[in-house]
């Protein structure tokens, strides 16, 4: 793959059971073509799975669709980098509240770990959310930890 356009992929997926696996496989294939290592791809795919589940379980969107965009590039030293945008047209959520709820509940509580897993597995995470929908932009780089 040498052409920039070939490194971009856009998907619109229905919110059905296990659809997160289709999203994760698509991103994984792109990452492999870019030369990203297996461990990095595994971390990225687990983050995508959690982001898609959050959209499916919590967005309450009318169109029942998840919009995904993947862009694969090379950093300055030709190291693979993937930018991922996952969007729903749902009701949005309070990011601060989601984070603080996790801290209050403590390690013994069993649910609500999606955001924490995403942030642990990705190098950069940015969430834009409003009553019109949510977009999570995540970045995975080969060279970062």
């Amino acid at each position: 793959m040498t052409d920039t356009a070939e490194r971009q992929m856009e998907l619109i997926l229905p919110m059905v059971a296990d659809i997160e696996i289709a999203a994760a496989r698509a991103a994984g294939n792109l990452a492999r073509e870019l030369g990203m290592s297996g461990d990095k791809i595994d971390e990225m795919t687990h983050a995508i799975v959690e982001a898609c589940i959050n959209a499916r379980e919590h967005s309450c969107c009318a169109d029942k669709r998840i919009y995904l965009r993947f862009v694969g590039t090379a950093d300055g030293d030709c190291s693979p980098r993937i930018d991922i945008w996952i969007t729903d047209h749902g009701r949005g959520f309070d990011v601060q509240q989601a984070r603080s709820r996790r801290q209050q509940l403590g390690p013994a509580h069993k649910r609500g770990w999606g955001l924490q897993i995403i942030e642990a597995h990705m190098d950069e995470v940015e969430i834009t959310t409003s009553p019109e929908g949510t977009t999570i932009h995540m970045v995975k780089c080969e060279k970062k930890s």
Binding site: T45, H46, V49, E50, I53, K110, W113
Partner: peptide
């Protein structure tokens, strides 16, 4: 090769 947080929560139970 892949797990999600809901599955893990059941394992914790």
């Amino acid at each position: 090769k892949i797990v999600n947080s809901i599955g893990i929560s059941i394992l914790i139970e």
